[in-house]
Nucleic acid binder design. Structure first.
Lengths: 366, 366
DNA sequence: AATTAGCACTCGATGTCGGTGAGTGCTAAC
DNA sequence: GTTAGCACTCACCGACATCGAGTGCTAATT
């Protein structure tokens, strides 16, 4: 049996209705609300077929039908029409992104909140992930108690800093001189694998400064390490509002799962597929039992050549896919537009990203 | 009518029982479980008195009694015996604090999680708040596109950095020279009110560098601004487990309130009272309707002369006050001990705090 | 005078039962 | 192929009875 045009339309009607009401939808509802010019009986027969094919499910004998994961999958892949951003949403997005561009951390936070409040679902956002791979410039700043702040400048105009402890710290003047020499040897090196020969030459060039060189290498290492992304959960409380999770225990388990970063990390780390703006995981496709009634839509944003991240929206399987996709795309486009705009004006934009990423990554020795 | 010894004991028994069970407790339960050598009838009379005095409440005519806010207040102020930390809790706290001391942000996060999981309540924690007030040292680091990273070192050995944009940026050598001159004029100045005369002398000493000086002043200003604390909510999901919040709507409203940072900010910002390790707000004492069934216990930690913060535990009014107080005090003591220990070994500890606070405060211009 | 036993009473919680209605599947007629 | 009709299913709801924990009061006891 193949999916006739009519079956498609009926399936779409069922899904639309169920997304709106969260109630199993019956043949009569479809016959009345959507003018197919068919009686409920005919629709009943079609629904029976659709159930046999696995697109819809009857929760119990005398109830209407609800879409199955497979049904949603079909919906998402072929039936769904892309929603336009509503004026209200558009304004909202633009305002937020434009006004807060000078404080990336705040922006990310705010963005997540806006997404949650526009969609009424839960947002998971990764911090901007920095893909810097080359050392550009090292500088020092002497602190008290024989500590030194080591600044590591990388390609993409980013800087990260780490506090290191030394047995003896030269004054700033001497440190500056040393940093210039160190730069001669390390500038342009890959952060992951600093060339052994470069290090050796450096050590030879600066005998007696082994500890300082070690501190620099350690700082570089830490800078590299610090590139693993952090995730933030926003609006988890929204899930409580859905009848799907009116069972408190279920809701609690879900939130627990969402907060367990490892679980989400894998999902969010999936690289974006060519030519797809979003990726959608429906119900059991997630492979997480506690989330079998949830879907996740993820997208990727690119703030610069070197800085990218992931945004995910979590909702019940009957979430409003087209709206979420529209909002997500709108948000990403807006962020990227704002950035392009700022860059034209030669604003120090990439630096902001730098700082934001550094925020989560600043580390030090002990 | 005054509170006889016996009434006290009965009240305490009621509160203990209610804390454990969340069920209204009746006279017979008290008579049987706690061996006062009194019949249920006698206890009934006493309970009747206690109700008249306002310490307990009857939720409906044929139910047992539950403690009122006033009852909890009396309990907290006079009846409660301080709980000892259990071995399990002690080990847990020590392990966590000791192992993660080298990464303050991670530590704070972990601390909050541990508190939540040990108590099964919700934790609100402020980032370490930095009370720096004096400029110590300014340094620069040139970046691409005519941007400069301005490093502001303050008393308490903290450093914050801000990216500023200039029309023209001198090379690092020149920047270093300039920073030394700038330091001569600004070092020791209050961050909030840089002396006008110092600025004027500086401008006079460095004619042609007005923009750079402005950038420095702006960076100082931003550093000052960035001292307002951030709050983090952990374990909000724990509240869902309590029968008090089995009503999903109620739970949602509560979480919403907790997430509204402004509400919490006020509470958490109350300065610690002399000679009190914790402050306790019971039910309506909070003055927040959504939280009338909640209590909050807050305490303050001091990581160094210049770095302090607040931890709060939110639970139902029938929360286990003595346990929470013990755990909170244990946690704070542990953190402070670990820090003292590390400082003895001359580890660069304050720097870690520095970095952690900077994490949340790094900003830049646009 | 304080305590206790006894008892009637209250009221939420729980369980049972029939009615209601939305929804189905099936059959026969169009 | 479509539809009208009908018997059947089953969640849901309100009514009603029952149960039991708990109370307040009174009278007896110490």
């Amino acid at each position: 049996m193949s999916l006739s045009e009519r079956k498609m339309k009926i399936l779409q009607a069922i899904i639309n209705d169920y997304i709106a009401t969260a109630e199993p939808v019956g043949s009569r509802t479809i016959a009345k609300k959507y003018n197919f010019g068919l009686s409920s009986a005919t629709i009943r027969n079609e629904m029976s077929d659709l159930e046999e094919m696995g697109f819809i499910i009857q929760p119990h004998a005398s109830a209407g039908r609800i879409p199955s994961d497979l049904g949603y999958r079909l919906y998402v892949d072929t039936l769904m029409q892309k929603a336009e951003l509503q004026e209200r949403e558009k304004n909202f997005l633009q305002g937020v992104v434009a006004n807060n561009m000078n404080q990336i951390e705040y922006l990310m936070d705010e963005t997540a909140k806006i997404l949650s409040s526009l969609t009424n679902y839960t947002t998971i956002m990764s911090d901007p992930i920095v893909h810097s791979r080359t050392i550009k410039k090292i500088r020092f700043m002497a602190l008290e108690n024989n500590d030194v702040l080591v600044l590591v400048g990388t390609d993409g105009n980013m800087v990260k800093n780490h506090t290191m402890h030394l047995d003896a710290v030269p004054d700033d003047e001497e440190l500056f001189r040393l940093s210039c020499i160190i730069n001669d040897y390390l500038s342009g090196q890959s952060m992951e694998h600093v060339d052994e020969r470069a290090i050796n030459s450096l050590r030879a060039a600066l005998p007696g400064w082994g500890q300082l060189i070690n501190a620099v290498l350690k700082a570089v290492e830490k800078t590299t390490e610090s590139l693993s992304p952090q995730f933030h959960l926003t609006g988890a409380k929204n899930m409580l509002a859905f009848p799907e999770f009116s069972d408190v225990e279920k809701a609690q388990k879900l939130i627990e799962t969402l907060e367990e970063k490892d679980v989400m990390k894998n999902l969010m780390s999936v690289p974006p597929k060519e030519g797809q703006d979003v990726q959608i995981y429906i119900g059991n496709e997630l492979g997480i039992d506690e989330m079998k009634d949830c879907s996740i839509i993820t997208t990727h944003y690119k703030l610069s050549e070197h800085v990218t991240g992931t945004i995910g929206i979590v909702g019940p399987t009957r979430m409003n896919y087209s709206q979420v996709i529209a909002v997500l795309n709108g948000m990403v486009k807006n962020m990227e537009d704002t950035i392009a705009h700022l860059q034209q004006k030669n604003q120090p934009l990439r630096r902001q990203l730098t700082d934001s990423s550094r925020k989560k990554q600043t580390e030090q020795d002990s």
